[in-house]
């Protein structure tokens, strides 16, 4: 028998001290990570990346190429891990799944009328089922921001719960599109709704709206995960997505995870980066540490 979780009143979620969050975030960026620990951090970052292509112009060919890159990031240097997953549209899931056969790389699919989420419940559920049936290991859904901002929290909660059901064994990541939620209080509230509704991961953004992932927003979500873990004992993953394009920024995020949630979250089971250009910058840093000279993007594959 599972333990009963009593749902909180989402109108009364804790308010966020924005100035406090910003000051805390500023401290994370001051840690000095060099040499061996930097190398370890860079490799960890690579293993946490969800290599993403979510464009209208995506083709099977592009997805195949990205899948190859996911498994062979930079074979010139031995010992480089592969990324955690590739993230594609539902129609590309089959292609990606086939291309990644024999690797441990997961296939994640966005669903629920990504990126706007403006569609009916029925379509969203079918969208999800289609992706899962095609072999998606992970589903990235978007919440209905319009309903959320109207204060219709039950609608958002029910929708997440129904999609979770449709996911079956696939892990569910819930995207808030924090750039549209406007306040950190809203981010905190959305985090709680999603986690209580069954999200396995909470994710900042679609990458289609600016600002996407920022450190303050991520910290608020990490703190929500921590509080939820203390209350229920269930671990929830975190995925900042969009706008993290440098190795340095990625290391800052890792520091933040470690100092907010602890080492248990420092694996690709519980933390991911949604990014397309981050991988190359991390690879360039690894090559710099390996060869000792600064690198040029000319020598790294364009996705």
């Amino acid at each position: 028998m599972s333990t009963r979780i009593i749902l909180p009143d989402f109108r009364n979620t804790p308010v966020v001290d924005q100035v406090g969050i910003e000051e805390r975030v500023a401290r994370f960026t001051t840690r000095s990570i060099k040499k061996a620990s930097k190398m370890q951090g860079l490799k960890l970052t690579l293993s946490m990346i969800d290599l993403t292509t979510l464009e209208g112009k995506d083709t099977e060919g592009k997805v195949k190429q990205m899948c190859y890159k996911a498994a062979h990031l930079h074979d010139v240097i031995p010992g480089i891990p592969s990324v955690a997953a590739v993230c594609v549209y539902p129609t590309m899931v089959k292609t990606a799944k086939d291309a990644l056969k024999g690797t441990s790389i997961k296939v994640a699919s966005v669903s629920t009328a990504f990126p706007s989420g403006q569609s009916t419940r029925e379509i969203k559920i079918n969208d999800t089922k289609f992706a899962v049936e095609n072999g998606a290991d992970e589903i990235d859904m978007v919440i209905s921001r319009g309903e959320f901002l109207k204060g219709n929290y039950n609608y958002v909660f029910d929708e997440i719960a129904e999609i979770k059901e449709a996911c079956g064994p696939a892990r569910l990541k819930v995207i808030f599109e924090t750039g549209e939620l406007s306040t950190l209080d809203n981010v905190r509230r959305a985090s709680e709704i999603a986690m209580y509704a069954g999200a396995d991961f909470i994710k900042t953004s679609t990458g289609k709206i600016s600002p996407a992932a920022t450190m303050p927003v991520t910290l608020v979500m990490l703190e929500a995960i921590r509080d939820y873990y203390y209350k229920t004992g269930r671990m929830v993953g975190m995925k900042p997505a969009g706008g993290i394009s440098t190795a340095k920024a990625a290391l800052h995020y890792l520091v933040m995870v470690k100092e907010t949630l602890g080492g248990a979250w420092l694996s690709n089971e519980w933390f991911r980066f949604g990014a397309s250009s981050l991988a190359n910058d991390v690879l360039m840093q690894i090559a710099k540490e390996t060869h000792g000279v600064y690198q040029s993007s000319d020598y790294f594959s364009k996705d």
């Binding site: 000792g292 000279v293 600064y294 690198q295 040029s296 993007s297 000319d298 020598y299």
Partner: peptide, 8 residues
Amino acid sequence: SHFSSHMD
């Protein structure tokens, strides 16, 4: 030496 070794 850095001016001359930078790949970019």
